[in-house]
Each structure stands twice: as C-alpha cells, then as structure tokens.
Design a protein around this nucleic acid. Sequence first.
DNA 1: TTGAAAGCGTTACCAT
DNA 2: ATGGTAACGCTTTCAA
Lengths: 327, 327
Amino acid sequence: MSKRVTINDVARTAGVSRQTVSRALNDKGEIDGSTKQRVLDAVRELGYRPSRFARGLVRQDTTTIGLVIPDLLNPFFTEVAAGALEAARARGWHVIVYDTAGSVEEERGTIEVVVSQVDAVVGYFSLAESELDAHLSGMPAVLIGREHRTPRFSSIRIEGAAGVREAVDHLVAKGHRRIGMLDYEGRAEPSIRRAWFADAMNAHGLAADAVGNAVQSVDGGAEALTDLLAKHPDLTAVFTFNDIIAVGALRAARRLGRAVPDDLAVVGFDGLQLGTVVDPALTSVALDTRRVGALAIEQAGRLLAGEPQLPSEELLVNAVLLVREST
Amino acid sequence: MSKRVTINDVARTAGVSRQTVSRALNDKGEIDGSTKQRVLDAVRELGYRPSRFARGLVRQDTTTIGLVIPDLLNPFFTEVAAGALEAARARGWHVIVYDTAGSVEEERGTIEVVVSQVDAVVGYFSLAESELDAHLSGMPAVLIGREHRTPRFSSIRIEGAAGVREAVDHLVAKGHRRIGMLDYEGRAEPSIRRAWFADAMNAHGLAADAVGNAVQSVDGGAEALTDLLAKHPDLTAVFTFNDIIAVGALRAARRLGRAVPDDLAVVGFDGLQLGTVVDPALTSVALDTRRVGALAIEQAGRLLAGEPQLPSEELLVNAVLLVREST
DNA sequence: TTGAAAGCGTTACCAT
DNA sequence: ATGGTAACGCTTTCAA
C-alpha cells in the first residue's frame, strides 16, 4: 500500500508552497496563470487527491445525511430514497444509504455506526425513541412514516384518512357495498390504515368486518386474498394495506377467475410506479413518495442549521386517490 | 448555529485530559472504571459526537465507496445497488449513492464531486474512459456492465451469450421458429445482446430479421411490441433487451389479444424480481444482480488495498435462462 | 492510570 | 502573487 500523496508532495514537485497549491486547486484568485498550470500538472502527475478529512476538518461545510431504510428492494422505500437523494443533491449534500434488512439487530448496528459517519439521520426506524435517543447522542433525526413522541425527534407523517375516504366513496359510487380489506400482519395491533378504512366504511353505514392479514410481499397478498375470499365470497372489492399486497391480490383474483375490476375491484395504498406495471393498472391511495424523501431532507437541513422547523402541517404528506384501472 | 462540542469540552466538564476522553470512548484499556463513567456522563450531557473528519484524519481506516447509478427507480439498478450495499456493509464500509438521472451532464457533475468524497467509485458510467480518467485523478474505479479498454480501469462484465443461446434453444424446443427481438434504442449501434441473439438464431439456421427498438420503459416495450407485431404478424415469440421492456411487451400482447405464452412467448433479460410480479411471470435470461454489486465492491476493495485484482474470469457474471411462465 | 506533546492534511489569515 | 503560521479535532506515542 503506497503512501498517501499529500499537498506537500505536490508543493515540492511544483516548486511552490502548499498554500499556493491550495489556491490553484480551489480557484481562489490571486494566482499567476503559469504557476497554477505548473501546480495542476504536478497534481495530475502525482495523482494527488485532497484528503476529505483534512478538508472537512478545516472548512466545516460538507454535509452528509444518513438514510436508513429497511429494504432497498422494496419499491416503496426505493421511491422515498430517490426523493431524498434528489433533494440532497440539490443542496450539494451527500447521502449514505443504510439498508437494515428489516432486522432490529441490523438497525441497532446501523445506529451505532451512523453516529460517527453523518451529520443527521433520516429514515424508517422501528426502535423505541428512548433507545434511538440513547445511541444517537443528540444527532438530528427525522423519523419517516411514524409519529414522534419526544420533542427531541422530528417526523414526516403520512395522512391517509381523507384519501382512504375518497377510495371508499369511489367504490361505493361504483355500486360496491361489500368491501374487504387486506391489512398488514407484521405488527401486533391493527394498522392505522385499517382504522381509516373502518371510519370511511362506517361513514357510509357499511361494516368493515371482512379484514384479512397479509405479509408484506406479493405472494403474501395473493395468499391473503384467497383466504379472505374463501371466508367472504360476497366481497366485490378490496382495499389493501399497500400496493405490494394489492399486486398479489390482483394475481390471486386472476387465478380465482375473478376478473378485475368487473368481478372484483382492488385498491392499493402508496401509489407506487409498480402499480402501472401490472395489468390492470392498480388504483391506489397515492402518496407523493418523492416528496416524503424530500421533506425528510429539508427538515434534517433545518435541524442542522438550527433554523425554525417546518410547521407540523407541512411535515405531513397527504394521500389522495389515484384511479387507474383496477376499480 | 451553536458551536461544535469538542473533545476538549468533554475533558473540561469531566475534569480529565482529552486523551482520557479518547480512551473512554474507544474502549482502550488502561482506564479507571469510575473515570470512564464520569467521562461517559459528560459525553451524554453535552451531546458530544466525535468529528468524523478529525478521527478519519488520524486513523486512516474509514472506507467510503461512491456508487454511481443512472436511476434508482429502475429496479435493475436497485438490485445491483442492494448487492453493493450488502457487500460494503459486510466490510464495514460506507456507500454514498449518486443517481445521475441518466444524464451525461449529471454524470459529469457527479464525477467532479465524487473525487473529493470517497475512496473509490463503482458503477455505471457513460462517459469515455479518457474523460473519466481525467477527472478521477487516479481514484480506483470499477465500471459495471461495460468493458474497460485502459488498464487504469477495472470492470465487471456481463456474459450473456450462453444464456441467450439457452433461451433460443428453449424456444425452438417449444416449437417456435419465428422469433423476434425488441432491442434497446438508446444507443447508436445495435446492442451486444442483439448480437448474442442473432448468433443463437443462426446456430439454429434461423433468421434474426424481426428486430424492433424500444425505449427503456414499460410503455416503450408495449409500443415496440405493437409495432413489431404489425410488421411481423407471424412471430410466435420475442426476446427483449431487458425485463422492463419485456413487461411492456406482456401488456401489449394482452391488449392485442395474444395470450402469453400460448399465442406469444416472451423472454426478458436480467431476471429481475419484477418478473415475478407480472402475470404470467416472466421467463428471463437471468443475471445474479446481487453478485454484480458485490463483485464491484470486492474489486474496489482490492484496488484500494493494492492487492492483486480478481482474475478476469471472476469479474464476469454469467446470465442463465430462468424459465418461468411466459414461455 | 493519567497527561503532555506531536502530528494527521488541509485551509484561513496575515505578512511580504 | 506567494509564503509562513496557526488553527481544525482527534489519536498516538511517550513520560510521569
């Protein structure tokens, strides 16, 4: 392993002082054209690259954000990540991506490591705020898709009540009365999305009694719909926890000989691009996923700068009904 | 913007020297239990986090890799990225992700910035090696999916000739004789995949004369298949440049009333998970995308360490036929 | 077990 | 236009 080329080496071969090298490299004025060229030649010749550490130490201006997501292969998180990357790039910031593989253990390890590598964290965490706080050592943190309890944290919330209401209205207007739901079975309690669904149904005097659980995958969705339909053959529509599950439901419906949307309408949640790939394209209660990522970055920036935080109502991403072909 | 809490502040409040703080934080032995506790308390109280720059400057051990991809929303790149992240994590390295949005301009900007932020780059580049070299200042770089000409670079190659041959064999065995292809129209020349296809066809004494071009999107694939079928209604099978285009072809086939696989067989390339989401699931000449990412990281590591590079034949990822339902 | 001093590679500031 | 000196915040000797 060859020794690092430093600014001193460049200075020596160019026959100038290191300050001059610095000037040449950073386009500070006050430098003779020929001197500059000589320095640049030496730089190229030696293959010199400034140490980001030394540079970061003296000019406190490089910002790096840690983006923590459970699974980069899940298109939902990918879309959010894309939004975050874009927003960060616009500010000239860097994003280190950490994939926790949906494991609490990996999440712990990530938190441990992230503290010493970035200026702020943003992302999806499953740990309790107390534990996060203990390991984050005061680092600015923005939780996505989850309410924060301690003022120490900040969060981007997803508001879907109105969107789900829209979806149910839409289904009812199409004549559906028996509408089921495929919830996410990962957590112990029913999801908030299920509550939104129940409220919307009740508003129409309809019962939200046909609810199944699905694991977070296409196969999970397919399986869950098959079960649900076996128990409730009279359903003419289903609302699902998210688009991944909905895509599975679409497949199961086809296997069961139920034409979508005629024999069974399907509504997802998230509004992923994935929904446009399937046939029929998926109607969904859509989130601006890009905005979710962008907001998280924006908020992290304010935290970092000590600026006033965005007002609570701006930290909210509203889901709206996106009608495509499955209803 | 409050001033940074430094190790000196901690030392002062804990009533020790900063070396002792360093010891307490880095679990170096030779420190009294109570002293350590006192330091840790001070750290928590002040919310102290060591500067990664200062630390990186003295211990030269944090490695950060830049991952450059054209589009994080394209599942192919996402899968490669996931593989790279996983491999990097296994080594305790960090990955900064740069999305160049498929634009040469953004790519230039990225290169410019990446030099001063990471220890090595890995990814998909469209710039010429000469230009890359000029801006990379000797930084180790691994090109993915593209052959390198200059020994200064390293590359992970995709070998699909055998896989495509398998695919055509498979189709022929199923009785297909008129097989078309949907190539990628982004570049000026026909793709190498098209050459693989032509070779495989010729080996069976078949003509590879029905070839259309598609832009890299689902819609693009749909449109292109429609056109191709209009020109060559006798085709009973199509091979596509990649899975994205194939998924579009699947949709177009359905719209045209061509049942897949009975009236039209479809074979993609890449073997993305996306292919399992559509119905029928896509047969594809599959790549181990995870391995592509992992190899790139591995190779970058060797370059960084000055170790002997992987032999050329290991820098190769072979595509193999993955038969699902669309054939 | 603890502390003092040196140095990591760079830029900012002040001379010249 | 160029160079000298002092930071930046931390860890690593080496002494005590």
